[in-house]
Each structure stands twice: as structure tokens, then as C-alpha cells.
Amino acid sequence: MTPAIRVANLAKRFGGTQALDGVSLDIEPGAFFGLLGPNGAGKTTLISILAGLARADAGEASVMGHDVVRDYRQARRALGVVPQELVYDPFFNVRETLVIQSGYFGLKHNDDWIDEIMHHLDLTPHAHKNTQALSGGMKRRLLVAQALVHKPPVIVLDEPTAGVDVDLRRSLWAFVSRLNREGHTILLTTHYLEEAEALCGRIAMLKAGRIVACDTTRNLLQHTNEHCASLRIDAETLPPDWQARMQRGAGGNWRYSFGDYTELESLLAALRTAGIRVQEMQLLEPDLEDVFTDIMQRT
């Protein structure tokens, strides 16, 4: 099957910075794919190359099998990009913006679809408002709508929820998830790792222009064998052997990090022997943030 997005040995240099250093990546059609990495890791550069906003120094990229340079028209028809910056054209209102954007893709009678996306993004009441008069959240919605006017099979969202309130974030994710269920491939970059964890089936992590991890979200979460338990006990001090191995957390709870569950058994046994009663215990599973931090530190 042709990947929705294929990137092979992509390299790009900006002045003295190697923004991308041999990145290869395949994203299957229908995937909800997360691209994570610290600022300057190369996420936006990668997206810019896919969108034709930047040209790679080496390597190849294609969207739905269409090379982004040689076959750029087909590649761009297959791709909808929600840019990171909150950009808009202050000369036009919401509807005009969407009609013009459709026109760029050669679509003339697109009003039904424009009405539908405006409805789903709650833009209908603002259809005749000048884009300049829209709130930040509404401008973001308009950017999403613009990316969708030509019904692209692949949608790229570059940090769509930066500076967006909770309501919009929820409705945006509901809408994007729906598009994904309907078969659209989604490529998402975000700094909100809990969003990536909840939404993305696969995740790639970029650091300094290289992919340092790429796997299903589930596998990545199992990547670290660190576990953590939080305990509340009825004593002020721990058995002497254990004092150095545990940390006092917020609210007087003790935190214990361990690799294997038998270590937790030993702790509980030691507490019982010392006559200390466990009043409450919680197991904290590693989340994507832990995995991300761990991978970024190790690589």
C-alpha cells in the first residue's frame, strides 16, 4: 500500500543549523500520527518540505505517492496544512477566505462543503465577519477550515492548540478525530504530550533533525520499565534501609520508583515487619511525558 506520507533521507540546512539530518519516515493511510520533539528539533521544517514551503537539500518526500517537488500539484491537492502561525488575510471575511482558498485548488462550486466545514467548526455565525474581527480561537478554526476546503486525504496540524482555550481544544480534537475515523490521515505536532498520548496511534520523536524514536504509542509507553508507587503510611519515618531509596512527595506521601514489581513486594514486606501500616497506595504508570523526557535525555 502507498504510504500517505513517505519521507526518505531528508536533509535540510539553514545557515549553520542542520534542521533535518537524514530523516526517513512512512505514515500509513488512515493513521493518526504524532511528531514530537523540542523546539528546533525539525518538526516544522519537515512539514514545510512536505507542503512545498521549503525545499530539501537531499532526500525525497511524497504525499499519497506524489513527489512533493516533481509532482507538486498532486501532492498539494492531497495535503491540507494548518500552519502554526495564526495568519489571516484582513481584506476578506470568513466565507470569502474559504471561497478563495477553494479557488486556489481549482474548485468552483464548493459552497456545500464550505457550509459543512463552517458548521462543524462553529464558524457559521461568523461567516460574514472580517477575519481581523475574529478572536484568536476563531482565527485558528478558520485556518483549520482553510486546510480542509479541498477535502485532502492527508491533514497536517502544526501545533494547532498552542494558546487555545479548553473548549476549542476539545471541539477541535473531536472534529479531527472524526476526520480520522472517516479515513483522513492526520499528522500532528504538539507540545502537549497528553494530547498526543490520547490521540495518536503512532509517534515519532525528533531531536536535532534526527528521529530518535518511532513506534506505536502503546509500545513507547512500555518503553521505560520504571514504575512509581505513591504511599501514605501511619509513621513519620521509614525503616532505616529504605530511607535513602524513597522520596517525600507533596502532601506527605512517599514516592518509590522501581523497575520490577518484586521490589515493591520487598518494600511492603519491610513496612509490615517494621509494624508500619499502609493507609493508601497508588501506582503511577509512566506517561508519554516521562517517556519523552527519558528518550530526549538518553539520545
Binding site: A51, G52, L53, Y72, R73, Q74, R76, R77, L79, V81, P83, E85, V87, Y88, D89, P90, I100, Q101, Y104, F105, G106, Q146
Partner: peptide, 17 residues
């Protein structure tokens, strides 16, 4: 103006030659 405001990107993302 399009460059300064960044909205030139809308045309750049399209299949316009």
C-alpha cells in the same frame, strides 16, 4: 502585505504554479 502578515502561505500551499 501578504509576506509581512504571513498569509502568502495560503497561495504557497496550493497547487498554483
Amino acid at each position: 502585505q501578504s509576506k509581512m502578515q504571513g498569509n502568502i502561505v495560503f497561495a504557497m500551499l496550493s497547487p498554483l504554479s
